[in-house]
Computed example of a mutant assay.
Amino acid sequence: MSLKEIVKNESVEDVLTFLGPTSDYRKLDRLFTYNKIEVITSGELSARYDDLLKRGVLQDQNGKVVKGPNWKAPKFVTEKKYGIE
C-alpha cells in the first residue's frame, strides 16, 4: 500500500476517514503537503477534518483522534484497493 497513491487518487474526506484515527493532524498535513499541496493551500484539509469531527466520523478523546460513532470504512478500504486488508 502506498499512502502517496491513496492521497493522490482518493477524496480528502476518504483519506481522513481512513487515516484520521491512526495519524495525528501534523502527519496528515505533511502527507498532503508533499503529495497534494492544493488541499493545504485551499484550506480544504482543515475544513474537511473539522467537518468529520462535527459529524462524529472522527472523535477527539483527550487529544487523541479515534473512530467516532458515525465512522464507516471508505469504499477503497472495503474494496481492498491498494492491498488493504
Rank of each mutant, 00 (worst) to 15 (best):
M1V: 05
M1N: 07
M1S: 13
M1Y: 06
S2N: 15
S2C: 05
S2A: 07
L3M: 11
L3G: 13
I6Y: 10
I6L: 08
V7H: 03
V7T: 05
V7Y: 02
K8C: 12
K8F: 04
N9A: 14
N9I: 00
N9S: 15
S11L: 03
S11G: 09
V12I: 15
E13N: 11
E13H: 03
E13M: 09
E13I: 09
D14K: 11
D14W: 06
D14I: 14
D14Q: 11
D14L: 14
D14Y: 07
V15N: 10
V15K: 08
L16Y: 03
L19H: 05
L19A: 00
L19T: 01
G20Q: 06
G20D: 05
G20R: 07
G20E: 08
P21C: 01
T22I: 06
S23Q: 13
S23N: 10
Y25K: 14
R26F: 06
D29C: 07
D29A: 10
R30H: 12
R30V: 03
F32G: 09
F32C: 10
F32A: 10
F32W: 10
F32K: 11
F32T: 07
T33E: 08
T33V: 02
T33D: 07
Y34E: 15
Y34P: 02
Y34G: 11
Y34L: 15
K36P: 13
K36W: 00
K36Q: 07
I37E: 13
E38L: 01
E38D: 15
E38N: 13
V39A: 09
V39W: 00
I40Q: 07
T41L: 12
T41N: 07
T41F: 01
S42T: 14
S42F: 06
S42I: 12
G43S: 04
L45V: 14
L45N: 11
S46I: 03
R48N: 13
R48K: 15
R48V: 15
Y49L: 04
D50C: 02
D50I: 05
D50S: 14
L52W: 01
L52M: 05
L52N: 03
L53T: 03
L53F: 09
L53G: 05
L53M: 13
L53H: 01
L53C: 10
R55C: 00
R55A: 12
G56F: 08
V57Y: 05
L58S: 04
L58K: 04
L58T: 04
Q59Y: 08
Q59W: 04
Q59S: 02
D60Y: 00
Q61M: 09
Q61K: 15
N62I: 01
N62D: 14
N62T: 06
N62C: 02
N62K: 11
N62H: 08
N62G: 15
K64Y: 12
V65A: 05
V65H: 05
K67Y: 00
G68V: 11
G68T: 11
G68M: 11
P69H: 06
W71Y: 13
W71Q: 07
W71K: 08
A73V: 04
P74L: 10
P74C: 01
K75N: 12
F76E: 05
F76M: 05
F76H: 11
F76C: 03
T78H: 00
T78M: 08
E79F: 02
E79K: 04
E79C: 01
E79R: 02
K80H: 12
K80Q: 12
K81T: 13
K81Q: 12
Y82S: 09
G83D: 14
G83N: 14
I84T: 02
I84Q: 00
E85K: 14
E85S: 10
